[in-house]
Design a protein around this nucleic acid. Structure first.
Length: 181
DNA sequence: ATGACGATGCACT
DNA sequence: GTGCATCGTCATG
């Protein structure tokens, strides 16, 4: 995870993200990520450290949750060496606590539970209170892949800057992506 | 003090 | 495909 964000983003595909809640464990296999770095005009860290992006400048494995569009939250895992790099979690294949995810999302369709960065945050009940915490703290954890997974890449979604950096990584055969390829 | 703008998702055409 | 809800953050004046 101390590797730079693009390498970390690629390596995270296939790992399982788990949130241990009082209701039970909720989680899924990471099938889509994006990388952001501090020399990257599309990144929150591009203009240096601010109050909001402080977690991006903390050690790798720190969680960075931000609020956007006046209503959504998105979650990152910090990469690099406390230098403003992070991996945005964009989609999961639901595997643990699917009934809880359905409740959290008000959505029955498994394919729509975690097929977007704000959706997965809502499904796993990740909150802004977790920003700045670390994977070592134990509420959120990562489990290694059970098998090898092919990883494709493309331009990132929803940004207007640095569109030429193809830092979106995904499992091309997964039906749980935020969009078709 | 203020205004422009999102690393989105959903309803609707 | 298009329109829009909704508000925290930060650059600017």
């Amino acid at each position: 995870m101390q590797q730079s964000a693009p390498a970390a983003a690629k390596a995270l595909i296939g790992w399982t993200l788990v949130h241990k809640t009082s209701e039970g464990a909720i989680g899924g296999i990471i099938v889509e990520t994006e990388a952001y770095t501090s020399d990257d005009p599309a990144s929150h860290s591009f203009r240096g450290q601010t109050l909001r992006n402080t977690p991006m400048f903390q050690p790798a494995g720190t969680i960075y949750v931000y609020f956007t569009y006046g209503m959504h939250h998105c979650a990152n895992i910090v990469a690099g060496n406390s230098n403003g790099e992070a991996v945005l979690l964009r989609a999961l294949e639901p595997t643990l606590g699917i009934d809880l995810m359905q409740k959290n999302r008000g959505q029955q369709d498994i394919k729509k539970l975690c097929s977007g960065p704000a959706k997965l945050v809502q499904a796993l009940a990740i909150t802004r209170a977790m920003t700045g915490t670390h994977l070592n703290d134990g509420k959120l954890l990562l489990l290694p892949p059970g098998k090898e997974i092919e990883v494709a890449q493309s331009a990132r979604i929803g940004i207007k800057q640095a569109v030429d950096r193809h830092w979106r990584f995904f499992d091309p055969v997964s039906p749980f992506l935020s969009r078709k390829q």
